[in-house]
Design a protein around this nucleic acid. Structure first.
Length: 648
DNA sequence: GGAACCTCAAAGAA
DNA sequence: CTTCTTTGAGGTTC
């Protein structure tokens, strides 16, 4: 039964591998797709301008690739037959084969690290200098690379295509692949700020902190070093992660009471290691980076970490702990003059709880109940009272003529669609991949993501209906300083999270008047979009044996949506040349017709109060647009270092 | 749905 | 090179 699509997916994989250019293609710089060549932007550098692209040519062109000893991914197709890896015995218990290092190296530790055959770190532009000292682009690149790997591993684990007999820890495996390949930065230990990491940045895994060099202990709460202290033999504290475990909270968000480490069995904590470092830093008065961890309100199981900037240790004492032993306490006070981070979160909590009022609040719910959670309208910049009139609609309005494809077979899954179950027609339609991870995070970009719809047999809470559940995060429409109204989030958002769809009326191309600003509030998939890679380096995935579903960058499905008269929050999202949101066509069946929607997903982690932006693309200057109308452009005010100057 | 417990872990320091 | 230290995050149970 799995035969058909199993083979199918196998062949898809092959094309994909072939499709992966041996060189880091630097898409934006040297466009290699038809779509990209028509891009006429002046400075299409995207994130990766720092790549020494000459270097990317070298390492792979010449040395023939030695195949991975045992690619993790080798079992993907092995359950439909061992053709690909005759050596692998049958699918079921992959464990003994999946960890080849287990038998080779010491008995206890099944080492999962991969020795990558190709120096992927240099493909990513990470040389010795970058490993030592970071910069903003590198930090963003690394975080995105990490999460792309993590999502892919998670996806494979969910569909049982990847098991190592270990607990499901995609974060650790992704981290391990990067760390062992030297794909990391800021390894040089330093007191104070870390280049490329900004106050307010958020993280969802401890390993992310390691990779960007903010806090190098993978678990330990106190990062310290022996270098840099006045007295050479003494350690100094560099960074702490306050996990909330020890009741570190105080009422004032600029003060942190931090507990020392050790002594959990009722013993007294000792003045050694991290505790000693904190003690010495108290005397030396050096800056200590503080990362505050707290529960992620969206998923009770996971945690969010926020970098709250520099603190100084002001005091320390010993208290009796819960289990009777002495516990060191350290009082940390935030260095003044830094941007608000943790404190801002606290304020948001109070607004959301209705304890404190929001300055400039005009409307508590712009959607008038159309969304399940309120969308506030705020202006603390000037006295404009509201954006132009429109009707709030949470989804698409379309007429019959725009429905392109025919209805398809809905799946017959009981309750939930199970990742890896190729009997599910909706999964088959996604080339055998379950497009989302268990907690509803998009794994990679596709031409089209197929979701289950109302006629599918699975329950409405099936994990393949991510984009049909409306807003989940608190959003705020707000007046920007110079770009009219904008949209921002009040909640932290993880990379890959569905944010909202572009709601409005599906319209005919002829109805769009292209002169003047009449196409404001129009979304058009046929514009020319700045190509970008979300899961950056296909080579890395391939090397790690993960067969990256090399992402589709050519997104078809011509669709024009006008949100001028009716629409949702998406109509307020502004353009940016280095955006934090991207769009993705998603289809599902409604009223016996397949309808394509445009869904927005978080490109990277987005801290609260950050404006949400996506790339508007460029109007195609082809025959469908009247030649008499001059193409207009708007001056871009996105303020990004990669700004292309204009858009539209 | 969520607290309370259990378990296997990775990286750096020693 | 090994051992030790740390506690994160997923799983299970009630």
């Amino acid at each position: 039964m799995q035969g058909g699509s199993g083979q199918n997916s196998g062949s898809i994989d092959k094309t994909r591998v072939l499709d992966v250019k041996p060189l880091r293609t630097l898409e934006p710089v040297f466009p290699n797709s038809g779509q990209a060549t028509s891009f006429d932007g002046a400075c299409p550098t995207g994130f990766y301008s720092f790549f020494p692209f000459g270097a990317s040519q070298g390492p792979q062109a010449s040395p023939p690739r030695v195949p991975m000893p045992t690619p993790l991914r080798s079992f993907r197709s092995s359950d439909t037959g061992e053709a690909e890896f005759p050596g692998a015995s049958n699918g079921e218990n992959t464990d003994s084969h999946a960890a080849p290092n287990k038998s080779k190296s010491s008995k206890k530790k099944p080492k999962i690290s991969q020795d990558l055959q190709v120096d992927v770190s240099s493909l990513l532009g990470i040389g010795k200098n970058e490993r030592e000292d970071g910069n903003r682009e590198l930090v963003i690149l690394l975080l995105m690379t990490f999460d792309g790997l993590r999502r892919r591993i998670s996806q494979l684990e969910d569909s049982k295509e990847l098991t190592l007999g270990l607990s499901k820890r995609a974060d650790m495996r992704a981290g391990n692949i990067l760390m062992s390949a030297g794909i990391r930065t800021n390894m040089r230990k330093r007191i104070g700020a870390v280049p490329g990491v900004e106050i307010g940045d958020i993280f969802f895994f401890r390993l992310e902190l390691c990779i960007v060099g903010l806090h190098s202990q993978s678990m330990g709460g106190i990062d310290y070093t022996n270098m840099g202290a006045k007295n050479e033999s003494d350690p100094v504290a560099l960074a702490i992660v306050s996990s909330g475990k020890y009741n570190d909270n105080t009422e004032e968000s600029d003060i942190l009471i931090y507990s020392g480490q050790g002594g959990d069995k009722g013993d007294d904590q000792k003045l050694e290691r991290g505790n000693l470092a904190l003690d010495r830093s108290l005397r030396q008065k050096n800056d200590v980076r503080v990362i505050r961890g707290m529960k992620d309100q969206m998923s009770s199981t996971s945690k969010v970490y926020i970098y709250d900037g520099l603190y100084k240790i002001q005091d320390s004492w010993v208290e009796k702990g819960k289990s009777g032993g002495g516990v060191f306490k350290y009082k940390l006070v935030r260095v003044p003059g830094q941007p608000r981070a943790f404190a801002a979160w606290k304020s948001i909590e109070r607004w959301k709880a209705g304890i404190a009022s929001r300055t400039g609040l005009i409307l508590a719910d712009l959607s008038s109940g159309a969304e399940k959670i309120p969308v506030s309208l705020v202006n603390d910049v000037d006295d404009e009272k509201a954006p132009g009139y429109f009707t709030y609609l949470h989804s698409l309005r379309y007429s019959k003529s725009f429905i392109v494809s025919n209805p398809y077979d809905c799946c017959n899954c009981q309750k939930d669609c199970i990742p890896g179950d190729l009997n599910c027609s909706c999964i088959r339609r996604n080339e055998g991949d379950f497009p989302y991870t268990g907690n509803g995070i998009l794994v990679s970009r596709k031409k089209l993501v197929h979701e289950c719809g109302p006629s599918c047999q699975c329950f409405p809470n099936c994990k393949k209906r991510v984009s049909q559940t409306g807003l989940k995060y608190r959003m705020e429409v707000f007046k920007t300083k110079d770009r009219g109204w904008g949209l921002r989030t009040l909640d932290p958002i993880r990379a890959g999270t569905f944010i909202c769809e572009y709601a409005g009326e599906v319209i005919d191309r002829a109805k769009v008047s292209w002169n003047g600003n009449n196409d404001e509030y129009v979304f058009d998939t046929t514009r020319i979009y700045h190509p970008f890679k979300w899961n950056y380096e296909p080579k890395l995935f391939e090397e790690a044996g993960l067969n990256d579903s090399s992402e589709d960058y050519n997104i078809p499905s011509p669709l024009i949506i006008s949100a001028k008269n009716v629409g949702n929050v998406a109509r307020f999202m502004n353009h940016s040349c280095s955006p934090n949101v991207f769009w993705q066509p998603v289809s599902y069946e409604e009223n016996s017709q397949t309808v394509v929607h445009i869904s927005f997903f978080a490109l990277r982690h987005i801290p609260p109060l950050t404006e949400l932006t996506y790339d508007y693309g460029i109007t195609r200057s082809d025959s469908t647009v009247s030649q008499s109308t001059p193409r207009w452009k708007k001056k871009c005010l996105c303020g990004s270092s990669k700004c292309r100057g204009s858009f539209g």
